[in-house]
Amino acid sequence: MEQETRQTFDDDLALIRRAAREAGDIALGYFGRSPEVWWKNEGRSPVSAADFASNDRLQTLLLGSRPGYGWLSEETDDDAGRLSRDTLFVVDPIDGTRAFINGEKTWCVSVAVVHRGKPVAGVLYAPALQEEFWAAATGPAMKNGSEISVSAEKPGEARQIAVAEDMLGQFAPGFRQTLHRIRHVPSLAYRLAMVADGRIDGTVVKRNSHEWDLAAADIILERAGGRLVDLAGHRLVYNRQAVTQGVLCGGAEHVLESLVAGLASG
């Protein structure tokens, strides 16, 4: 039974990689060409014609191939029927839409397969950067065909952290001095991928991120040797009725505990 399940998710990984590449290439056709943009969530969140085109391709290809799976996407009205499905796709057709419409390359298509609350396959495809990250429940995390891993501790060196400036101030001054805050990266999924491939050591995620921002990056980070946790140190559970999260920390083990403790006590 375990071998059959593993084979299923390996097949799912191949499927979502193909779907993400097709959707990403569609989005890339809009990139830098001033696509039409609308505003949702009372004007706080942009969505472009490219988001919708990418979403349509993903939904057609993925549910056409796995009609028994549930569906959760940022750009599709939520269907409570997903809660009764053991397995579903969790999708952000363009994570980093603000970057996309501003002509910045740090955006990606994020697609995950979630089984019984846990991501079991995930892909992040960043076509403008020609980067693809992927992982499944077994095996390593990969980037463009090469295995990746989180950073190792470097004693005496500042730890590279992606964190909002207002949250940086919540850490005790002594710990704050051990951190170097990197320039903001609008795509949350891509920031977590940067942790997974060791470019940075960790990141702090503000309250109200969504499952579609996180699921694919979560399994990639896990298979690269890191973790994404809440301030109680718990891993995330997906396919819940409420799809938003509280404050989260993602990182290599050598920084994660300190990040969590610093925010939890702040």
Results as ranks from 00 to 15, higher is better:
E222G: 06
S265R: 14
D166I: 14
E74G: 09
G202P: 04
G266I: 06
R6Q: 13
Q3I: 10
R183K: 15
G64N: 09
N239D: 13
M142G: 01
A126T: 05
M194R: 15
F100L: 07
D79A: 14
T106R: 10
R82S: 10
A242C: 12
I200Q: 02
G96V: 04
K118M: 10
A172S: 14
Q160N: 12
D230C: 04
C108E: 08
L62M: 11
A23C: 06
E104P: 02
A136Y: 00
G198K: 04
R66N: 06
E2L: 10
L188H: 07
N208L: 14
A53Y: 02
S209P: 09
D78E: 15
G117S: 05
A19I: 07
R98A: 12
S65Y: 11
V91N: 08
L231M: 05
S73C: 15
G174W: 13
S146Q: 05
H254N: 08
P93N: 11
E104V: 07
A232W: 11
R159M: 15
Q170V: 12
G32H: 04
V205N: 00
Y190Q: 08
R235M: 08
Q160Y: 13
E131G: 01
N41D: 15
V114R: 01
D12Y: 04
Q241S: 14
R17M: 13
S151V: 02
A189Y: 03
G81I: 10
A128C: 07
E257G: 01
N55M: 08
T203N: 08
A99W: 02
G262K: 04
H184D: 11
L13C: 00
K118Y: 09
P119R: 02
L256Q: 00
R17N: 12
G251S: 08
G117I: 03
K40W: 10
R207K: 13
L15D: 06
P155R: 14
D11C: 10
W38T: 13
S34L: 11
G68Y: 02
G225E: 02
